[in-house]
Design a binder for these strands. Structure first.
Lengths: 246, 246
DNA sequence: CGCTACCTTGATTTCGGTCAAGATACGTGG
DNA sequence: CCACGTATCTTGACCGAAATCAAGGTAGCG
């Protein structure tokens, strides 16, 4: 079964705020896991959740709002690594080295849920489905990252933007928001940075897609008018097919 | 502590053939883990270990030889995802979906070690340091993948090749082989494919680096003559600094 | 020994980056 | 509520790194 499906269903059922728990947990287990979570007060736009170099102690999930992770090189240039929407977990890259190698910043007013990692390790030993879930969550991140590598290494600017928008679209659908009409929480600069493109290129492609009646763009508001043609552009089969193959 | 260090030391100590076990295991535990491993007979060059679509049941480590993982798109084009040297684990991307989404093929005569995943889950519940180790291993793969994303999205052809060679160099050092003189187990085509470059570009840059006395290339034999300048080209600090920062 | 796969080198083209200049939106304080 | 300044976004002109096209060269294998 696909982790993403599991996630949406169970998040609501268990009210575990984005920990994406399997629903095989008992009442009692849900209670235990829930007790381990720390819910933060809202984080203002541009405030950081953690910074590169910070000691690693917790994983985080987005409860509301949006987060970007990024690293800064010696020349001071920022490199956007990922965007996280409600229900998604971030900070996974820090488990290995014991400190954060990237920073995380709120793209808008955001609430996160903190999960102390030592508690998580402990719980996943006691609750087998929890351990299994964590393995799958980490594995899922690896597949996604490899997907992005393919995109960055082989695809044209238009294909990248197309894939990016379709990706967002399906993530919004998963949380029962409109997959055709949504607001981009990040700036054009961030999109370009993430996709390995200049801002100007992102802008130009947005207008081109708009001219071809595939997209309607108004600032950060995006409306996908022709999902099918967008898939063609992204060199991806329509999502329902992709889902069926799983 | 860095997972890679742990790994080299313990692999030898425990003789667990690349499972990269922590050395905190007791005699008894080592025995148990060792019993779960299946050692394969050698795999011929170009033979697959598993193929995309196969049901996922095991993770693999390379014992000797080398492996590449790749996916094939609808047009039949291959996309190289990664190269694996002795001691490295592959197949991690399959945990989530329950079937392999990429294929793995031997680049030369290769022996692998198979680790049934259900046994691994079970063991990691019983042996806390084993679970902790697996989390770090998965997290490490995520960091590496994100590093590659940066390379693919932002770096020039020369920087990519430079980083690639330095990466190989440090992986060879980890297994106590010469970090300055080694044999590339993969074809130029595979390198280009992996780095998002045309074969011609890879070839041209190899000759250019050779002309500048940074590299000596003879077919698949590579010798790094000027490690420091190669680091500059790769936009990376020399490895000893990188190691010190950890 | 010859075939095929792999590698190298050169000539030409092209996609997307860079530079430059406006336009639009946004937050702040008067 | 509006004016101002700053961020962000868009559009155009030009340029360059690497892809593509083309043609030989080399090496490993049956």
């Amino acid at each position: 079964m696909d982790i993403q499906r599991k996630y949406t269903v169970s998040c609501q059922a268990c009210s575990l705020n984005g920990l994406c728990m399997p629903h095989s947990l008992s009442e009692k287990e849900v209670e235990i896991v829930d007790a381990a979570l720390k819910r933060s007060k809202p984080i203002q736009r541009n405030k950081t959740v953690f910074e590169a170099g910070d000691k690693f102690s917790s994983l985080y999930t987005v409860r509301s709002g949006a987060v970007k992770t990024f690293s800064v090189d010696r020349e001071g240039d920022e490199h956007v690594i990922g965007f996280y929407l409600p229900g998604e977990m971030f900070g996974l890259d820090a488990i290995n080295s014991g400190h954060h190698i990237s920073s995380a910043k709120a793209l808008e007013t955001t609430a996160v849920c903190e999960i102390p990692f030592n508690r998580l390790e402990e719980l996943s030993r006691r609750i087998p489905s929890m351990q299994s879930h964590m393995y799958r969550l980490l594995s899922h991140e690896i597949s996604e990252d490899q997907q992005l590598q393919l995109l960055l290494g082989k695809k044209t600017a238009e294909e990248r933007i197309g894939s990016f928008l379709l990706g967002l679209s399906s993530r919004y659908r998963q949380r029962h928001l409109s997959p055709t009409s949504f607001r981009l929480p990040m700036a054009r600069t961030d999109i370009g940075n993430y996709l390995g493109l200049a801002v100007e290129t992102v802008s130009r492609i947005f207008t081109r897609l708009q001219k071809n009646d595939i997209l309607k763009v108004d600032g950060k508001e995006v409306c996908i008018l022709d999902h099918h043609r967008l898939c063609e552009i992204a060199q991806k089969e329509p999502t329902y097919e992709a889902a069926a193959r799983r």
